[in-house]
Design a binder for these strands. Structure first.
Lengths: 211, 211
DNA sequence: TAATGTGAAGACGTTCACAGCC
DNA sequence: GGCTGTGAACGTCTTCACATTA
């Protein structure tokens, strides 16, 4: 066995789609919708009915033929799976425009909570933005233990990103989402996801041209 | 044949990595580095040597055994492939924190140019941010034809995203990069890429827990 | 010998097709 | 009949192994 992993590992793409289903389903529940068919959810999520059923199969959730799936139960099941990890308390690194956008994006979101923001710009220290207090990067180790932070979002300029990643890893953070336009080197024990905005746009440009 | 596509289509993931290689290679070229081995580029890009060679194979670029690849030639080849589409002039929708972050991100980038920003907030109209002028969304059709815009980035709140996508499609935009937290419906003729920030973080949380 | 180029295998993800069950 | 659940086929992406080349 190569890595030590939890049993019943869910495919990466499925995890991403489950997060989207969750958003859609909470909206539906508020609208009073109680059941949904796989083809309906698929149409809301821009994918196919078999894909939805596969995803639900992966988390062991069942519906009933002719009746579809119960929205409330599906939502609860997805939250049990996605929320099942140890930590969902997040540090944000970099309080520029992107950082502030992310703070407001996650401000009223359940489950994933940004509990502290970090910057090296003196003028930002102590400020509270979207309900989140800013600290100096040097305070990270303290906040990690006090606030129980286990994940981080990197929204600093590329030139600072590797240093931040190193500091985060040293402080015991277990997962990082990187928005900086540089590939980061992190230890095996840290899960790293890179959102490469330029690459994404480059992809759009390339495939939009071949249509 | 299901879709009408350009010949010699490059795999999606490869296109994304090529964009990253380009960034890395321009940096190297400025540092005076003339040749590079696949395993070196792989190490900078956080992937493997065979992966790099496959990617280069996809664009028909060759190196020489023992000598590696010529950095300048590789860069030129990548730019020929990525820049080969019809249009790389971009509209930004939404001039909030995220929009401004994206404007500065693309401000001094070659190839992909954000030539106009759109918002419905009166206070932003006419302003120039990171060298890009803000217009009302109603002016989109005019700017598309005047400025030759073919791609769009959606950075508006979820509640406005579908309307913006519809306006963009109606104005003749061929590719969209969506940052809003809602799946969008667009015509087959428009290439759509969704960057789902919540889903990405949810994925980090999930896989960081199982390490 | 130390690198590239590439067929073949393997892992992963999606779609199909249909059995089974309200 | 109309929907779910799922084995099997299919397609895409990554890795391996090694022939090839300077």
């Amino acid at each position: 066995m190569k890595k030590s992993v939890n049993e019943s590992k869910i495919p990466a793409r499925t995890v991403e789609r489950l997060a989207m289903y969750r958003r859609l389903l909470s909206g539906m529940l508020e609208s009073g919708c109680e059941t949904i068919f796989s083809h309906e959810l698929a149409s809301f999520a821009n994918n196919t009915a078999p894909q939805v059923r596969r995803d639900l199969m992966a988390i062991g959730f069942s519906g009933r033929p002719r009746c579809g799936y119960r929205v409330g139960e599906m939502l609860a099941c997805i939250e049990r799976v996605l929320g099942g990890g140890f930590g969902r308390r997040i540090a944000l690194f970099g309080v520029g425009n992107l950082g502030r956008a992310l703070l407001s994006h996650f401000a009223y979101q359940r489950g994933l909570t940004v509990v502290a923001a970090f910057d090296t710009d003196e003028s930002k220290l102590g400020r509270v933005i979207s309900g989140c207090r800013c600290y100096h990067l040097d305070d990270l180790p303290e906040r990690v233990s006090v606030d129980g932070i286990s994940l981080g979002i990197i929204a600093v300029p590329g030139s600072a990103a590797q240093d931040v990643a190193d500091a985060a890893a040293a402080a015991g953070i277990r997962g990082l989402l990187n928005f900086a336009p540089v590939p980061l080197r992190v230890d095996q024990s840290v899960f790293l996801e890179h959102i490469d905005i330029t690459a994404a746009l480059e992809k759009v440009a390339y495939f939009a041209s071949s249509k």
